[in-house]
Design a protein around this nucleic acid. Structure first.
Lengths: 140, 140
DNA sequence: ATACAAGTTCAAGTCGACTTGAAGTCAAGC
DNA sequence: GCTTGACTTCAAGTCGACTTGAACTTGTAT
């Protein structure tokens, strides 16, 4: 399929697809004239990239998980990333509970509520920078 | 306390603290000459900001959760954010399972493994941009 | 043959979240 | 009274992840 079809199928702008190809995250299976041709499996790959981004991994990190540079360097990396996710899941869970509690709490301000403060101190490590919202493109 | 102490206590660079103050995310309780003075409760606030960032919220979103602009606009917002987190937690969980499986799987490549593909398709929405790692500053 | 929509390249621009640099202020120690 | 070091402001720079624009090529449709 051509780049427009892939864009449609993946929900990503063509500019992003070209950008990802340049970065080596996906590859076109050939050209018809100038035009890139993609096989359908890149859709899966794009989904995986989206998942990784959503999980907070950078494009470079995602790229590293794809390419099997060594024998099982990759395997180790994947497990390390899975562990990172475990940590993050715990953090998000306390954050979520904290928000729910904050919304329900009677205390004049949350910093006076002991329950909130407890939640707040449970998490309190492993901070990661991460800005920028995607502007409305759903995959699938 | 002065800005250097706060930096030490929070693990954040002073440049970040000034930046956050400019953005209205924290406030100094006064000045001694030119120098900002902070009360210790900003540490809690900074922890909260860190948590929010880690959860994928932008500084503006975090700011919105703090300021009680209306009567219970805030409450609604907090609950909405909590729901976003629920979604994200589910996604991260499948991602984590996917990674663990991928690390263990015998299939020649993961796209040929049905279990992996199933996991892959379970999540597949709600993508969010988010780059940039923090360069080693632990809070607390 | 000719237009045109959709593809292409490459350079430059944008956005959020900070960081860095230049230039100035000021209390404390010599 | 002068240096020093920690603070200050304000403008500009950086980084990742894309997006946009200008200029060019090409396969179909008239």
């Amino acid at each position: 399929m051509d780049i427009a079809e892939l864009a449609k199928a993946s929900g990503l702008p063509v500019s992003t697809l070209r950008f990802y190809e340049e970065k080596g995250l996906i590859q076109s299976s050939g050209r018809s004239g100038l035009r890139r041709l993609f096989s359908t499996n890149v859709i899966e790959r794009l989904t995986l990239i989206a998942l990784g981004r959503n999980a907070g991994f950078s494009l470079d990190e995602i790229g590293a998980m794809f390419t099997p540079e060594g024998p099982d360097i990759n395997r180790t990396l994947l497990l390390a990333k899975a562990d990172e996710l475990d940590t993050k899941i715990k953090e998000l869970t306390s954050m979520r509970d904290g928000l729910r509690h904050a919304a329900a709490c009677k205390a004049p301000n949350h910093f006076e509520c002991p329950k909130f403060l407890r939640l707040l101190h449970v998490a309190g490590k492993n901070r990661v920078r991460q800005p920028n919202k995607l502007k409305e493109n759903k995959l699938k």
